[in-house]
Design a binder for these strands. Structure first.
Lengths: 193, 193
DNA sequence: TTTCGTTCTTGATCTACATCAATGGGTACG
DNA sequence: CGTACCCATTGATGTAGATCAAGAACGAAA
């Protein structure tokens, strides 16, 4: 499992054997069954999870009891309980597995160790944060102004692999539309061709 | 003007006189008239701006020619062309002044200098990034699911000072609704009281 | 003062999407 | 094997908010 993480890092910067040992010393490995929780409301574990197999999702439940998916994390993605809306809001924050998944956990302390000792990590981390901020701005604008169909098509183009692996009602939840509407959009799209 | 920035930092960590000189050596000060641009499409200046007086806004123009405001930045806020959607998208990214404003500019190199030499800056910067990520998640969920009225009320509660200083059509643009709808919401709200 | 630009208001219509409700298919489990 | 549960589909209806259109209020410029 660790190999997947090494390879991920090596796309940004080279790793020595020593680096690999360092990484190994600050992470934990874990498996999750489908629909098993990594983070439940309240237990703010303050760590990041890197997915090596499967897909996780983070979501909130608003005060009307509805689920809203914040993020999907398939292989080679990070997902974290530090982001999300764990603060202030009356809603609850969850992370669970969409499929059976394998993940690598790193806590705040381990993260700081890598920031300090692993050359290239800090820069790679910063770039990741930035990429994500841009993606969020994109999603904000798109959710404020694009039609349901446009958002659906946009998602398919941006994350084709995720779209195929996730149940449609979750996709609907991510896009902020109802499952019925997703179904109708798909039907129309298939008729057009 | 620099005093405002010093005070801002000192809410997070103390500054020596030497720190202040260091800061002064890496920033630039500038004034903007109402509706004057800080960043126009294309000229990606790659720096951050700290507002000491006035309000700036960042926005994109989508392929249908509509403006969408990403962020307002009043006094004591940062605004940056590094975030935003300057990447990949066919839309254009702008920053301009809503009111006559004074700002302090810092470029990437200056930022790195402070990260390295100004104790407390890195942590404060990281915390800011995180706060903003949380705010963005909040805005995403809210734009996907809350009604126009709920989003309006939410904005008033979250940013009362901004709401009073910004023209309503900009507020509408930020919220992703039409100016007409904002007007009707306000009317209804006033009738309820 | 008049003129002009900007912002806000109000009304009439239209439409995308939610909601409600029923049905059918797939898969797990007794 | 049938029963049950989850998920996707399809139709009928309702509604929030966009769009179109026409003023009204305000300040700035001359």
């Amino acid at each position: 499992m660790l190999e997947v993480l090494y390879t991920y890092f090596e796309r940004s910067f080279p790793l020595t054997e020593g680096d690999k040992s360092l990484i190994q010393s600050v992470v934990l490995m874990r498996s999750l069954k489908r629909s098993e929780f990594l983070v439940r409301q309240g237990e703010v574990a303050r760590h990041g999870a890197f997915v090596t197999k499967g897909i996780l999702r983070s979501y909130v439940i608003d005060n009307r009891g509805r689920e809203h998916i914040i993020q999907f994390a398939p292989e080679n993605w990070w997902i974290s309980d530090k982001n999300g809306m764990s603060e202030g809001t009356p809603s609850s924050f969850f992370i669970d597995a969409v499929e059976d998944s394998d993940i690598i956990l790193i806590d705040m302390k381990g993260h700081e160790t890598l920031l300090e000792k692993l050359k290239g990590y800090a820069e790679s981390f910063r770039a990741g944060i930035q990429r994500r901020a841009i993606a969020k701005d994109h999603r904000i604008v798109s959710s404020l102004t694009a039609s349901a169909e446009e958002r659906y098509v946009d998602f398919l183009e941006t994350y084709p692999s995720i779209a195929q692996r996730v149940p449609q009602h979750m996709l609907a939840s991510y896009l902020g539309i109802t499952p019925e509407t997703v179904s109708r959009i798909r039907k129309q799209a298939s008729l057009k061709k």
